[in-house]
Design a protein around this nucleic acid. Structure first.
Lengths: 112, 112
DNA sequence: TGCTTGTTTGGCCAAATAGCCGAGTACGCA
DNA sequence: TGCGTACTCGGCTATTTGGCCAAACAAGCA
């Protein structure tokens, strides 16, 4: 029942998980994921317009998401369309959302 | 149906979400969260032993989790005990896990 | 062929993150 | 009071991340 130090294999597993979570840990990338979960797919130019930063920056963000296996890309003509590879992302957001409302309530309590 | 650039308020909301996710985006912190979800609470020294790095480092990680509102701390005697503030973390992990198996399968496909 | 548009990539710099060490604080005990 | 243990925090350095610009690619069109 003691807190034992985990094996290298287990550690590598946590490392891999952290890598995926890290890919989601940026507002622009969350915005992208949310947009892709609402519409099926979006090209880089649409996402760039939505986010409002340089297209090269958005492309990099998409690269990060793709590297984590969260999105897939498909080139059609001169445009590249991205879509989500996974569906469970919304559960993910629900949890984050509940943390946020929980935090908000707590801060409220401190004021009263 | 166009990708419109979100308002400052919406943007701030994504920023806040990203902040919480960022707190989870580290193997040591995932390890901590997992440990706390299994046992109700752990003191810093136990977590330090489990993770195997400097106690100051572990304390910093706990500070990050606390800052995001994910854990609560309570001092009893000379020890400080941490516990999870939220329960939904496991759903969270389930999603990450499914991404990982999905990725693994995909890599497998590339080999065959 | 050259021009335009959509996208990715390399280079660079600023900012954030992670880790350790050592100092400081808080508590319990003699 | 003084000592040891548990923990936090300031300071430092190394690494990573994020952003922009400019250059390189790729595809369609004149």
């Amino acid at each position: 029942m003691n807190a034992k130090t985990p094996s290298a294999k287990v550690l590598a597993r946590y490392e891999a998980r952290a890598q995926i979570i890290k890919a989601l840990a940026h507002p622009a990338r969350l915005l992208i994921v949310d947009e892709l979960s609402k519409h099926g797919e979006r090209c880089v130019c649409e996402l760039t317009e939505m986010i409002g930063s340089d297209m090269s920056t958005v492309s990099r963000h998409l690269g990060v998401l793709k590297g984590a296996g969260l999105v897939a890309d498909e080139k059609r003509g001169q445009m590249v369309f991205y879509r989500l590879r996974v569906q469970c992302i919304s559960n993910f957001f629900d949890c984050i959302e509940s943390v946020m409302t929980c935090n908000a309530r707590r801060h409220q309590d401190l004021i009263e």
